[in-house]
Each structure stands twice: as structure tokens, then as C-alpha cells.
Simulated scan of single mutants.
Amino acid sequence: MFSIPYGRQNIDEADIAAVEAVLRSDWLTQGPAIERFERKVADYCGARHAVAVCNATAALHIACLGLGVAEGARVWTAPNTFVASANCARYCGADIDFVDIDGETFNLSPDALEAKFEQAAREGTLPAVLIPVHFAGQSCQMREIAEVARRYGCKVLEDASHAIGGRYLGEAVGGCRHSDAAVFSFHPVKIITSGEGGMVLTNDPELYQRLLRLRSHGITRDPAQMRGEAEGGWCYQQLELGFNYRMTDIQAALGASQMDRLDAFVERRRRRVADYRRELEDLPLSLPRQLPETDPAWHLLAARLDQPQWRRPLFDALRAEGILANVHYQPVYQQPYYRQLGFRDGLCPVAEAYYQRALSLPLYYDLTDEAFDRVIQAVRTSLSEIAS
């Protein structure tokens, strides 16, 4: 019996040919494929600038630095996310805090955010940057979130790692209409892949120039940015402490090729989510509510069971059938590292309640009808036995 993962990449002959062309070229890294990939993503999303890096964690890190996050600053994010959404602030020496989620979309709650800002204003603990996470590929309510954040002088960095190809208010996620910058991930389980890889998008030209430096040791070769006159054409200057976060041309070629099929990838995922909604509607579980202003990319399909005690036996039963269900996510602040910083249970009760009942079902481009039917039958049979 073949295993059914919760997510996986799709690689075709065009992808292989694109990578092979780079391998036969003069450039394996820091070459023209990088800029082609960046331009392709920026144009698709309607953003002015894009900076490709080695992974989305690196993208979040340099985006935070570019937005001024430093030691003593505060950053807020959602707890229902991978740890990178919070770790990026810690890399900068900043304090992190968490805003609870909406109980129906599983995304950051605008109401909880408003209340937290009001309290922080009274206490003098306002954040410098807010990182809303587009969980599972559905955009957060960015118009409302941006309005309240800017009222309190807070910059906004969208963690859109799950959401390339999604739309919000009729526009592509990543266009930064309601944020200062946005980040995508190209890990193999995401919508498109470059193997590993990430990207920061922004409409701010000064931020863009700093991101370019930060991804490559803080170095510039642009005479206009140098301190004093360049000695010659060989000259470069390190203007600040940056990192080696560069993407290779091999990765960029794969990512750019995958962009040609992004809409097809997303459309297949949307149809499969509709299939899940139809087939599971009579079971004691719920799927995330889709807001009318969103058209999600659906990186994940996260179900919420009616009872928390059903999650472990259902997870184990599905795994025994070769169906590699997963859980997304335990609240970040419940991880041992964050508990050491003083975080305790009860901070975000909606996220905690969601986690106790969460189970992600397989969702990817190559999920065949046969595999899908197998998942549905296994969920039905196992949940019926467990819940009876």
C-alpha cells in the first residue's frame, strides 16, 4: 500500500530542463536566474521589488532587520504558525508576543489585535512590527489589521509562506498594499518549490536596497552607496553586518519554472478543498471558514475535530493506514524555548483550544482521486469508531 503524505512537490520535465540549463551555464549562483525569478514573482503579485534568499526563515529575519527590529524592540505574531514566524524577531534581539486567532478562520483575529493594541498603548509596550500569518494559504483580514497597526505606528510584515497564488480583495497576496513587506516560502511542501528558498517582497525602494545588502554580508558594489570614492572596478564595501542568505541559480531556475504552473497548482488545490468540504460535511469536524474577500491558495487543509480526545487515536489510525496526517500548529509559545522566556498557557485561549483538536489532512497537486477516496474512507471509518 502506498503512503499518502500531507503535502509534496510536483516536478515536471520543464522544471528539470530549467535546472539543467543552469547546470550547463556559467552561473550556478549569484547569476541572472536569481533576478529572473524575483521579477517573475514580483510581477505576478504586483509588487515593485523582490529579494530571493535561501529560505523563508532568512527572508523573515532580514525583513525584520530591514524594518528596524533591534534589541529591545517588540514584535507580535500569531501563535498558530511555524516557529520561524517568532524566531525571526529573537534573531534580532527583540521581544516577541502573540495575538490570538479567530476561531473560524484560524488566522490572526482583528478583534484580539485591537484589544491587545489598546492594552499595549496604556502600558507603553507597543510593538515595532506585527507579523500576521496567512495560515493554510488564506489571507488574514489585512485591511483591518493594517488600519489598526498603523494607527499605533506599527509596521506590518506579512508571513505569506503558505499563500503564494492566493488573493485578497481581488488582488494577489504579496502585493504589499496593506503591509511594508511580505514573505513567501518555497519549501517542497508549499505551493511552488525551489527546493529550499524564500523571498521578501516590498514596494519600498530603500528597504529593497537594504534587503539586497543584508542577504549578502552587508556588502554593496554600487558606487552610489559606498562611503567615499571606490578605488576601482574591483571594489566592494561592507556597510553593515549582513548574512550569507543567498539563493543559488539552480534553485531560482526551478522556482521560476514552477511559477509558470502556479495558477494550475492553486486551482487544483481549491477544487480538492471543495471535495473535502463536500465529503466531510456530515462528520463531527469543521474546516476553516473561507472569508468572502479571500480566494485562498490552500497550502494546508487543517480540520478541527469536535472533541480533543479524538485527535490522537484518529492520527494514529490514519498513520497505520499509510495516510500521513499531520498537526499544524501547536502554539509557538508552548515550545520549551519560549516557556523559558516566561510564556505560560492561557495567553491565547482560542489558539490553544484549536490546537487540541487540529489535524491536517493530505492536500497537494498530485493527490489522485484514488488517494483522496482512501483518505475519506479512512477518516469516516476511524472517526466513526472513535466517536461512538
Rank of each mutant, 00 (worst) to 15 (best):
A33W: 01
A47G: 08
D100A: 11
D26H: 12
A63H: 09
E123W: 04
A136Q: 15
Y365W: 06
R271W: 12
N10H: 15
G153C: 10
L113N: 04
E279H: 15
L65T: 05
K40D: 15
H328P: 05
C54E: 11
M259L: 07
A59C: 03
E352Q: 02
T81Q: 10
A297S: 13
D26T: 13
P32E: 00
P308F: 11
D222Q: 06
P292M: 01
E267H: 05
H328F: 12
R74K: 09
Y354D: 11
S3P: 07
S257I: 04
V75N: 02
N87V: 15
T29G: 14
G170L: 10
E123V: 03
I62W: 11
G93A: 08
D345F: 13
A317C: 00
L212T: 05
Q251V: 05
I145S: 00
A160D: 02
A146G: 09
E20V: 13
N55A: 03
W310Y: 13
Y333P: 01
A50Y: 03
Q141I: 12
Y276W: 06
V41Q: 03
R271C: 12
A94V: 05
D260E: 15
D282F: 09
Q330L: 15
Y355D: 15
C140F: 06
A84H: 13
G93T: 07
G68K: 04
A224E: 10
Q237A: 08
D102P: 09
F98D: 00
R210I: 08
I386V: 14
S194I: 07
L254Y: 07
L324I: 06
L314Q: 05
V183C: 02
V41G: 02
F186R: 04
R210K: 13
Y236S: 14
F82D: 15
S185C: 11
P296V: 05
A128N: 08
Y245W: 03
A94E: 01
E118R: 10
Q290N: 07
R277S: 04
E123M: 06
S139F: 01
R312W: 09
W76I: 09
M247D: 04
R278G: 07
K116R: 10
R39V: 08
C45F: 01
S388D: 15
K155S: 15
H49C: 11
L361K: 00
V156F: 06
V379K: 00
Q225E: 14
I192T: 08
F243W: 08
L108P: 04
L280Y: 12
V83T: 06
A86T: 00
L23P: 11
R90K: 09
E144Y: 02
A351C: 12
R177W: 10
I62R: 12
L361R: 01
I16C: 14
Q141E: 12
